[in-house]
Design a protein around this nucleic acid. Structure first.
Lengths: 239, 239
DNA sequence: TAGTGGTCTAGACCACCGG
DNA sequence: CGGTGGTCTAGACCACTAC
């Protein structure tokens, strides 16, 4: 493991164990250099990781402050598979594959994945059950040139795990667009909608390294089961 | 201006002017060092800024790739005041202040802002009009010890501009929680809801530097006018 | 193998904060 | 004023990619 990651994890451990409670101050960078026998740059990289993950807050001239992480159990602003989300939630999530077939893309999908009509995509339709209720309907289109073989078992388990494991590729980033929409017939047919007439629609464009789009997903969430948490930082324009 | 910010802006300029189109490769870090007469570290800081703002993607052993920013004109994942959002949208946004008063917080607000019942908070209720339609209802609670004087004019113009300008404080970050909820009587009374029976609820906890909570906001959006865009990065756990 | 980005080090100077 | 974090430099070595 990289040194600055190791230092970051060591400090996270101290925060989560309560040795560094919320609102307490971290040792200075100089002290941390000695503690961890590292250069200042390495310490600063470790601290930057802590900032990105919402553990601490820095400001010039003062020591870093430990933040209160209690409210932030489910960061969806990262990319996580359903399997990962379920694990961190401790919820009983199951997946059912309704449809899985290699097809030629239609006009809209071809454009989204930057393909031609002659290329192939996997179309996957999955329902996610939370405690037995069908609350999310996912429709995926995956570039079949990048992911040649897919099975029902992989789609039920974890698509991302398959891609990053056996396929040896790496997921890089995803663009997400969240909107609200009226329910359509698919939603009605496959989700336990109760009397909701709207869904939260999350469109994702997912990229492999270095910047290759491989997946477009439309994810329809029953409104009462949708929740998105994010920490936004203010971009101060340069003076 | 800091050197690495200057370099970052210079490169953004080249990307936005089309001199560095999407999918093209940046010069190597070594070449950039010579071009900008800077050390490698400074170049890397500039590139990191470009990554954080979604302009480029790096991966080891390869040159950096320019990403397509077209879809990302409206970043609500940053902290922006309504005034800033309106400016970048070119939309006709106006604000009407319905209520502005210094009060003692109730139990719920006191807890959210880490105050006691003896402290004071400003309660502000504002309606946001897009092209004449009332589509967002904001209810703010602001720690009055940090922002002693507020007027209707400031609330109608820009609260953040007032805090970062005359008050000389800096906004640091905000935690946001997005959910869907049924409309309540306030929504019905003040928003042009058409026949929608749900709203998108965005709760924000906003912090000043170094990490002082000063504001809690509940923002209720008419569903058809809500849109949230985000670029999420995959956090690979250390091996 | 050559070129690239990733990590790590050591040291300098500056800007800001607090007492 | 001393201490702190922010910026910048110069150089070394490693890991990965592409050929």
């Amino acid at each position: 493991m990289k040194k600055y990651e190791a230092i970051c994890h060591e400090i996270i451990g101290q925060i989560e164990s309560g040795k560094l409670p919320p609102d307490s101050l971290l040792p200075s960078e100089h002290e941390l250099m000695q503690t961890f026998q590292a250069s200042r740059d390495t310490i600063r990289k470790a601290l930057n990781l802590l900032i990105e993950n919402g553990y601490i807050q820095k400001s010039q001239g003062r020591r870093s402050v430990v933040l209160d992480m209690k409210r932030f159990k489910l960061p969806i602003s990262n990319i996580e598979s359903m399997k990962e989300v379920g694990k961190s939630l401790g919820e009983d999530i199951t997946t059912k594959v309704l449809f899985l077939q290699k097809i030629h893309p239609d006009r809209s999908v071809a454009k989204k994945l930057q393909l031609t009509f002659d290329d192939y995509v996997w179309m996957i339709v999955r329902v996610r059950y939370f405690s037995g209720e069908a609350v999310i309907l996912d429709t995926d289109f995956v570039n079949a040139a990048l992911v040649p073989d897919l099975t029902k078992e992989i789609c039920e388990d974890s698509l991302y795990e398959y891609i990053e494991g056996p396929l040896g590729k790496r997921i890089s980033y995803a663009d997400k667009i969240i909107t609200c929409q009226h329910v359509n017939n698919f939603d009605k047919q496959y989700l336990d909608l109760k009397d909701y007439d709207m869904v939260v629609d999350v469109e994702s464009y997912t990229y492999l390294e270095p910047s290759i789009i491989f997946q477009y997903t439309a994810s329809r969430h029953r409104p009462d089961k949708f929740r998105f948490e994010d920490r936004a930082r203010r971009l101060h324009s340069p003076k």
